[in-house]
């Protein structure tokens, strides 16, 4: 049927409809960006028009008031250290649970998988208490340690599924050659985990970068640790109707993760697909 023309008329109709829907999906970004360089008066007059003049100093003001470089660094440090730690501890644990399925390890695996259903709200208040007791509250490392705990289960599960398909022969050969168990893991198994590691890194990065509630509870009173979502929330609360400041703030706030996505798009989409099929 479709042999004559690969690009038929119904396909054209579909294409036009899809492009129109795509434009609707993008329209919020148009509103934010175009209005972010207007004066407040011009925004209130007509929010849909392209700006008549560009007030770039909106951005300059916001950049300073948000203390953006500082806030950005906090988000970056928390995300990078948390993700690296999660990858290391969850892959090590998964490796051991696959290779030594003792009763204890089987129960541990089941408990971790079951724990994924617990909503954050069900532990958050007690977490405030525990993190105060353990002196984790109000420290950067405290937030990172919390992410280790909350990120472990899903990441371990993904590694577990992957390690099951890693052949034992290679490891046995290495042992015969005199490699220690730790050497086997770090020199042989760990490098083989790259495909699933991409998935783990991406899922955790998107989650931790955008997370709001955990840092709010764990930074305590220490405003120095404000991350991007927290900074923007506070900023937005202070400038509710002052859209000429709120909008450039939002534009700066979403820029890093959008850049991250556009550069690593291919990996992100593949990583998410792999993660959900396993999960």
């Amino acid at each position: 049927m479709e042999r004559k023309a690969n690009y038929s008329f119904p396909l054209l109709v579909m294409e036009i409809a899809a492009v129109l829907l795509g434009l609707i999906f993008l329209s919020p970004f148009y509103f934010v960006i175009s209005n972010s360089v207007k004066t407040l008066g011009e925004i209130l007059l007509n929010a849909a028009k392209w700006p008549s003049t560009y007030h770039w100093d909106n951005y300059k003001k916001v950049w300073e008031q948000l203390d953006f470089p500082h806030v950005f660094m906090n988000s970056l440090l928390i995300t990078v250290f948390s993700v690296c730690g999660i990858v290391l501890i969850s892959s090590m644990m998964a490796y051991r649970l696959v290779r030594k399925p003792t009763v204890f390890n089987k129960i541990l695996f089941t408990a971790l998988v079951a724990s994924m259903i617990i909503p954050f709200q069900s532990v958050m208040l007690q977490l405030v208490r525990i993190t105060s007791l353990l002196e984790l509250r109000g420290h950067l490392y405290g937030i990172i340690i919390c992410y280790f705990g909350f990120g472990l289960a899903l990441s371990m599960f993904l590694f577990h599924g992957f390690i099951k398909s890693v052949p034992l022969e290679v490891e046995e050969a290495a042992v015969v050659d005199g490699c220690t168990p730790y050497g086997v893991y770090f020199k042989i198994v760990f490098p083989l985990l790259t495909p699933i590691m991409v998935t783990v890194i991406i899922l955790n990065t998107l989650w931790i970068w955008n997370d709001y509630l955990l840092p709010v509870l764990v930074i305590g009173g220490n405003k120095d640790l404000t991350t991007i979502p927290l900074g923007i929330t506070k900023f937005f609360g202070a400038y509710t109707k002052k859209w000429d400041l709120a909008l450039p703030g939002l534009a700066i706030g979403i820029a890093p993760i959008i850049v991250f996505f556009l550069f690593l798009q291919k990996y992100i989409v593949e990583g998410i697909t792999a993660g959900s099929v396993k999960g």
Partner: peptide, 23 residues
């Protein structure tokens, strides 16, 4: 090996998720 491979993860999980949940 059990301690090195499983220990750290288990420790963080207990402190941050499991004990708060039981509490």
């Amino acid at each position: 090996q059990q301690i090195v491979f499983v220990g750290p993860g288990l420790l963080f999980f207990l402190a941050v998720v499991f004990i708060p949940f039981l509490l």
